[in-house]
Amino acid sequence: MRLAFMGTPDFAVPALRALHQTGHDIVTVYSQPPRPAGRGKKLRPSPVHLAAEDLGIPVRTPLALRRNAEEHAFFRALELDAAIVAAYGLILPVEMLDAPARGCLNIHASLLPRWRGAAPIQAAILAGDSESGVTIMQMDAGLDTGAMLLRDHVALTDHTTATTLHDDLAAMGGRLIVDVLAQPPHPGTPQPESGVTYVQRLSREDGRIDWTRPAAEIDRQVRALTPWPGTFTTLDGQVIKIGAVGLTPGNTQATPGTVVDDTLRVACGGGTDLRITRLQRPGRGMMEAADFLRGQAVAAGTRLGVA
């Protein structure tokens, strides 16, 4: 088929490569414009942009699509069979949604209608869901409200992290979109009205650990928000990033946020506790707790999260 691909982050790259390998004619790729990155703040193309260049596919990086008549006309003139959208980051106006013969198909990283919105991978882990997955959706003018064309699921465990789930769903999305395009066009299944949930964009503040919450919730927070936006607490007034934690048996009656032994076991809400296993001080890399403690001992009785 004659396709356009629209995506920006690493999540979308497996789908782009799968479509290319299957032999579809991807005539152009849309991606977010290059952004300043690194210490030098040099402009860095997105992962999809770089992958498209590697595949020899021309890339377009408009700043906006709404009220962009020139871009609408260009897109319409492509005479596409379909456009494939995966975490692109811009809302498509109706003029573009209706242009391809089969419309625009979205690779969404959740089991719709659960977790519509910007951060479905993190939301599923934070909520303690038992499963997640990918839905291929026929896009309409709503926010992730279109008919479902195909979906698959994966079980979530107590060890699932945002990184592992991201990689599993990215690969799944590539497989499912190839399968959908191999099928005859069909209207899909409308999303049920029950079970709809939305998730907002994440911010750095979402990563602040509230030690009054139960240890299991903090564990999910760390697994969901690492590496981005990251979880953190304070130690002697210094911000410390938390890379991993482990739940511990038993309980403690210490004040939440109190370090209760010399291995970074920390009291949490409801008499629960956990052990910090990976952490990072400012200006240093993420390290194992034992290595951290060799350079900076943290005595029992120390309070974390105190400004």
Rank of each mutant, 00 (worst) to 15 (best):
N68I: 08
V94I: 12
Y30Q: 00
I84K: 01
D140S: 03
L225T: 01
E205L: 09
L235Q: 01
T157Q: 07
D81N: 12
R102C: 09
G7M: 11
Y88K: 00
V27N: 01
S194A: 15
G271M: 07
R39N: 00
R2S: 07
G133V: 03
Q183V: 04
A15W: 04
A216Y: 11
G257R: 05
Q138V: 01
P58A: 12
L90V: 05
L181C: 12
F292E: 05
I242P: 06
D236I: 02
L150H: 01
G195D: 07
S31E: 01
H24N: 09
A51I: 02
R102N: 06
T145I: 11
P184Q: 09
Q253N: 12
G173C: 05
L264F: 11
L126M: 14
T8M: 08
E193H: 10
G269M: 04
D140Y: 09
V239C: 06
I242V: 14
L3D: 02
L304I: 09
V260I: 15
G271L: 08
M148K: 09
R220I: 03
R204C: 06
L63P: 00
A12I: 08
R281E: 14
Y88P: 00
A99P: 04
T252H: 08
A73S: 09
R76W: 02
D236T: 03
P33L: 05
I107C: 11
R44G: 04
I125V: 14
T161N: 03
T234R: 12
V29F: 11
R175H: 15
L3C: 02
L92H: 00
G257M: 11
K241H: 15
R17F: 10
E288L: 13
Y30V: 04
A83Y: 06
P100H: 13
